[in-house]
Design a protein around this nucleic acid. Sequence first.
DNA 1: ATTGGCACTCCCCGTCGGCGAGTGCCAGAC
DNA 2: GTCTGGCACTCGCCGACGGGGAGTGCCAAT
Lengths: 338, 338
Amino acid sequence: MLSERRLEVLRAIVQDYVGTEEPVGSKALTERHSLGVSPATVRNDMAALEDEGYIAQPHTSAGRIPTDKGYRLFVDKLTNVKPMTAPERRAVQNFLEGAVDLDDVVGRTVRLLAQLTRQVAIVQYPSLTRSTVRHVELLSLAPARLMLVLITDTGRVEQRMVDCPAPFGETSLADLRARLNSRVAGRRFADVPQLVQDLPEAFEAEDRGTVSTVLSTLLETLVEESEERLMIGGTANLTRFGHDFPLTIRPVLEALEEQVVLLKLLGEVGDSGMAVRIGHENAHEGLNSTSVVSVGYGSGGEAVAKLGVVGPTRMDYPGTMGAVRAVARYVGQILAES
Amino acid sequence: MLSERRLEVLRAIVQDYVGTEEPVGSKALTERHSLGVSPATVRNDMAALEDEGYIAQPHTSAGRIPTDKGYRLFVDKLTNVKPMTAPERRAVQNFLEGAVDLDDVVGRTVRLLAQLTRQVAIVQYPSLTRSTVRHVELLSLAPARLMLVLITDTGRVEQRMVDCPAPFGETSLADLRARLNSRVAGRRFADVPQLVQDLPEAFEAEDRGTVSTVLSTLLETLVEESEERLMIGGTANLTRFGHDFPLTIRPVLEALEEQVVLLKLLGEVGDSGMAVRIGHENAHEGLNSTSVVSVGYGSGGEAVAKLGVVGPTRMDYPGTMGAVRAVARYVGQILAES
DNA sequence: ATTGGCACTCCCCGTCGGCGAGTGCCAGAC
DNA sequence: GTCTGGCACTCGCCGACGGGGAGTGCCAAT
C-alpha cells in the first residue's frame, strides 16, 4: 500500500503535469507544492510510484508523467468533482433556457460543453426507449400508401412511409388511428409491442394485412430510434491536444465520425452516475490516448440519454467532471420543463 | 499575353505540385513532362509566370509553387473536369440507392463524397423554398396546446408546438385541418402565405386568435426551414493538409462548426453549375488556404440545395470537380425517385 | 526515514559545414 | 529572336558537435 505522502506526491504530479504539459521533476514539485520534504525524498517516492506503474519517464533522466493507471487512481481517490461557481452555473442556465426546440437544446448543449471544457463535446439526443408516445398519426398519401408519424413526449417526431398490401379506406384509417392512439398514447415505448399485439384481430380480414404492416413499421421505428442520434462539437479543441498531435488527432477524428463508436463510448455509466474512461480503458484503439467523461441526463429521475466530452488523458479531471455534471443537470431541467 | 508553352509550363507545375506537395524546379519539370525544351528555357518561362503572379517561390532558390491566381487560371483554362470512370459511377449509384430515408441519403452522400475526394465533404439538406407541402397535421395535446406537423415532398417532417390564446375544440380543429390541407397540400412553399391569408375569416370570432397563431407558426416554420441544415464528413482528411498544418487546421475546424459560414461557403454557383473558390477568394479568413468546390443538386431540373468539398488549395481540381458533379447528379436522381 | 551531496545521463538548442536543388544571367548557337 | 549550356551563387536541409540544464540514482550522514 502506498503511504499517504506518496499519494500526495502523485496528486501533485498529476496537477502539475496537467497544468504545464511537461514532465515534472522532484525539485519543481517541492517548489510548487509545500510537501514539507526535500527533493531527495520525493525522488524516492517517485521511484516507488514508478515501480507500481503509476508514473513513467518519457526518457531516462527526464521528469515523470502519470500513466493511465496513475490518472485512474487520481480520479478515484485523490480528487473530487469540482463544482462550477455560481456565476458559471447561472450562465449555463441562461444559455440553455434560450433554446426554442429540441435541436436547439442539443445544439446549445454541445456548444456549451465544448466551450466550458475546451474539449470535444458529444451529446446524445434524448432516448426513446424510456420515453412515452404522445401521439401516432396516420396519413393517407395514396390509396395504398400511408405515412406514419410518431410523436414522443421529448418532442421528437419520426415519420415512415408504409406501403400497404391492399388499399385502405378512410374509415378504416380513422378507426386504426383511434384504436392505436387509445392504446399507446401516454405509454412507454417498451410497452408498446404487447399493447398493440392483438390489434389486427379487431379489423376485417381484408384490412388485417395493412394493419399488421403499419404495426410492424411502428415497432421498427421504435427500435431504430433507440439507436440514438448524436451531435458533436468543439472539434477545433483537438488542436490543443499536444505537440505530437498529427498522429493523435487523425484516429480521433475518424472515431468521431462513427456514430456507432461514439454511442459505445458514452457507454455504461458508473456509480456516481458519471463514467470516466482513461486512455487504454477505451475499447476503441484510436482513442487510446484520450479520456472520455460521460454522464446520463434526463428529464425525470431516470436518464434518457448521455452526454460527455473527449479530451487528452492529460485533462483537468475535476473541472471537466464538474462541468459535465452541471450541464447534464441543467439540460435535464430544461427538458422537464418543455 | 502568355504564350502557349508558358501555359503548358503552368499546367505542368500545378500537376506536379499537386502530386508531390513540393516546390517544383525547372529540371524536374523537363524530366517529368516532355515539353521539348531545356530546363533553361523553362526557367525563363517560370520567371515570366512569376512576374505575372501565377507562381511564387517559398524561398529564394527553391522551386515554384502555384499561387491562388495560378490555380485560378489552371481551373479556368488549362484543364477540364475529369469524368469518373464507369465502375466508379456504378459504385456511387449502388451505394446511394441503398438509402432508406432522407437522413440516410444525405449521410451516405457526405460519406461518399469525402471518400471519393479524400477531402471534407459538406451536403446541404434539400431546401424547402422550392419544395411543396405534402401535408399539414394538427394534433391536440391539451385544451389550449396544439402540435403542428409539416410534411414536405422531400420527406422532411417538422413539428412545432402552438400555444393557443383560447381553448380550441376538436370540431374546429378538424375544420382547420381540412381547410388548411385543401389549400396548401401540393403547393409550393413560397405560395403558402397568400393561400392561407384569409383563412381566419372563415372561423368564428372566438377561434380566430388560435387560427392566426397556428398560421403564423406555420409560416415561421417555412422560413426557418429555408435556413438549411447541413451535414459534414471526412474531417479526418484534414490531417492530410500539409506539414504546417496545426496552424491551418484549427481555423478550418472552427469554420466547419459554424453553419452560417458553411452555408455562405456553398454560395453562388457559377456558369457550369459548379463553383470553385480558391484560397483568398473565400470570404472567410480561416479558409484562406483552402479551396471549395460546390455545386447545386436537385430532384428536378432546378437545384434545391448544394453540396461540395473543402480541401487544400493544392488539390486535384479536375478529379474533385468530376466527383462532386457526379455525386450531385446521382443524388438528384435518387431524390427524384423517392 | 530523511536529507544533502555527487556523479551521471540525456534532452535541448545553437552553431557549423557540406550537400544538393534551384536560380539568374550571360554568351553562344540555331 | 529564341533557345540552350554553362557557371556562379543562394539557401534550405541535415547530420555532427558541444555546452548547459534539469533530472535521476545512489550513498553516507543525520
